[in-house]
Write a protein that binds this DNA or RNA. Structure first.
Length: 589
RNA sequence: GGGGUCGUAGUUCAACUUGGUUAGAGCGCCGGCCUGUCACGCCGGAGGUUGCGGGUUCGAGCCCCGUCGGCCCCGCCA
């Protein structure tokens, strides 16, 4: 059989069952394993559908010789007869374990060199090795499963929006660089030297313009680019489910998105998700959970005890309150005794969020054990314990700092304690809207207000008068969707009047000239009949990662980059020819 | 930009408290044996610029400085 001809398979490697016994079949696949017994030889053939055992019998000398030379991960074609295995040889761990294929003819399409690592789950290779040979890593069943799940989620999204009369419309990847937001990836223009396109951080302005065009109900599964530092859940390019609707308020957007989430969980995981979702105001989220993406799968709500704390003789507490900060904490109920080492570790942890230290109260049968007993009377300690409703076996964690630091330290500590003490049951689900975000926040470095969401987010109508007098108090018509403590979507009802948009730019310290130069097209568009509109964007990679039960979005992206934005496989970014640079009019320093 | 952690055979790891002879093991690879395994088994063998550069030392995988790279985190991410 010539190698140039690919045998056309009759079945894939996960298909055959005992009822197929007697059929002559052709399989194509990779040699996943080979077990040479000196006489009989077994091999497993793998493709993306499954694995099938092939058996070579010693009577066929030529075949046996071929099989004996089979290299792992070579691609082969195999013709043979399906044989039902005797009961004592059935492999119950394989879907195809009831049969094997007795080989009659074998062709090696491509012999594989020894692999840098074994194709198996979990991988026995480091991330670095996996990324360098990503095409091999993707052969692992777990990765294949993730890619299939991602595909299914994308198809479910498309079906859902299509049913709801949304239109999928593509928007440009080469667009105008905009101020605000993340650092842009720039693309030099060859025709106009010295000018640059930017890759979209999101199709935000385009989808708003599509609303002006009358394409009420738009969605797109679209790549976005942000040149910022990476994390387990952040890649330089990532995928959004981008959505926009006209003539809507928050309720209309929430309704459609809750339906989408329910559909995805049902189709992908077979799980029912109760709708509507809880709506938690931002100030409450910050006060109780210390963050705008709270995980409600466990309790340990944060309480402010600045009142009692300032009455104690503990200078750290008194100073914090006196200087306008707070003393807050939460009760890690039932975690039991805390070793010195654990306590030190947790203190180090909160320090990364700016806290100076961590105060612990260990409530025990015979009293309260705390490092601050020298400064705080027994009465005060008891009142604190009461305030946190603490019983023996509980540990109260407290941080004294300015409010922002209290939130960050305690909010993240709360998550860590829950994770460390395995407080989250596998099937628990926490899904909620966080609403009533501030429109802007003060940026100490830039000495100006910056948009908390983005500059096109509408303020609440009743708060518009405050834009001039007390901007920090203005609430936005913005919302985030939070799933198990991760922000998976964010959106808002937008500004659709050029006047209000100008006011917003003014508030952000963007002068009229700059606003016109950067966003003139949007403000112009709003003057020709703009519908009230709003929308949302999902982090599709994060969503898929959660559905797949993965901690890092790298596990659900076929070809991800490293935390330093390198592609270890193809070596990008790379230097380019001098000629290319000259054409673009670019000189390197 | 900052912090933590890691980098030793193709690969995953080890080499101890305190720098000291020839840097070890599993898997993989190569050779041999094996007719029912399914991570087959057994015997033997090859395989090393200890990421890279410099320094300290009689002597460095180990200590110091720099650099490159992986992962996690802070900042950043409208």
């Amino acid at each position: 059989m010539s190698k140039s001809n690919t045998w056309q398979r009759t079945h894939h490697c996960g298909a055959l069952r005992p009822q197929d016994a007697g059929k002559t079949v052709v399989l194509n696949g990779w040699v996943a394993s080979r077990r040479d017994h000196g006489g009989v030889i077994f091999a497993n053939l793998r493709d993306r559908w499954g694995v099938t055992q092939v058996v070579f019998h010693p009577e066929q000398a030529e075949l046996i010789a071929q099989a004996g030379n089979l290299k792992l991960e070579s691609t082969v074609g195999l013709r043979g007869r399906v044989v039902k295995r005797p009961d004592n040889m059935v492999n119950p761990n394989m879907p195809t374990g009831g049969i094997e294929v007795a080989a009659e003819e074998l062709v090696v399409y491509s012999e594989a060199k020894p692999l840098p690592f074994t194709i198996k789950d979990p991988p026995d290779a480091l991330d670095e090795t996996r990324l360098k040979y990503r095409y091999l890593d993707l052969r692992r069943p777990a990765m294949q499963k993730n890619m299939i799940l991602r595909h299914k989620a994308a198809q479910a999204v498309r079906r859902y929006f299509d049913e709801k009369e949304f239109l999928e419309i593509e928007t440009p990847f080469l667009m105008k660089s905009t101020p605000e937001g993340a650092r842009d990836y720039l693309v030099p223009s060859r025709i106009y030297k010295g000018r640059f396109y930017a890759l979209p951080q999101s199709p935000q302005t385009y989808k708003q313009l599509l609303m002006v065009s009358g394409f009420d109900r738009y969605f797109q599964i679209v790549r976005c680019f942000r040149d910022e530092d990476q994390r387990a859940d952040r890649q330089p390019e990532f995928t959004q489910i981008d959505v926009e609707m006209s003539f809507v308020d928050e309720d209309a957007v929430f309704g459609v998105m809750e339906g989408l989430m329910a559909r995805l969980f049902k189709e992908i995981l077979g799980k029912e998700v109760p709708v509507p979702f809880l709506r938690l105001p931002y100030p409450e989220a910050m006060a109780k959970y210390g963050m705008d993406k709270p995980d409600l799968r466990f309790g340990m709500e944060i309480e402010d005890i600045s009142g009692i704390a300032s009455q104690t003789e503990f200078q750290v507490f008194k100073d914090a309150v006196a200087s306008g900060g707070a003393v807050r904490g939460f009760n890690a109920s039932g975690i039991g005794a805390l070793s010195r080492k654990d306590a030190d570790g947790l203190a180090e942890f909160v320090k990364t969020f700016g806290a100076k230290g961590l105060v612990t109260l260990q409530v025990q049968q015979d009293g309260i054990k705390t490092p601050i007993s020298k400064f705080v009377s027994e009465g005060h300690l008891k009142r604190m314990a009461e305030l946190y409703d603490a019983k023996p076996g509980d540990v109260i964690f407290m941080v004294a700092a300015e409010e922002k630091t209290c939130c960050a330290a305690l909010g993240n500590l709360r998550n860590k304690i829950a994770a460390d003490h395995k407080m989250i049951k596998p099937d628990d689900l926490s899904i909620l809207w966080v609403v009533d975000f501030p429109l802007v926040e003060w940026d100490e470095q830039e000495k100006r207000f910056v948009a908390m969401h983005h500059p096109f987010t509408s303020p609440k109508p009743e708060d518009v008068p405050l834009m001039g007098s007390d901007p920090a108090k203005v609430r936005a018509r913005a919302y985030d969707l939070v799933l198990n403590g991760a922000e998976i979507a964010g959106g808002s009802i937008r500004i659709h009047e050029s006047g209000l948009q100008q006011k917003m730019f003014h508030l952000l310290g963007i002068d009229a000239d700059t606003a016109r130069r950067k966003f003139g097209y949007l403000m112009d568009a709003f003057q020709y009949g703009a519908p009230p509109h709003g929308g949302i964007a999902f982090g599709f990679d994060r969503l898929v990662a959660m559905l797949a039960g993965e901690d890092s979005i790298r596990e659900v992206i076929a070809f991800p980059k490293t935390t330093s934005a390198l592609s270890l496989m193809d070596g990008s970014p790379s230097e380019v020819d001098e000629v290319q640079l000259r054409e673009l009019g670019i000189k390197l320093e």
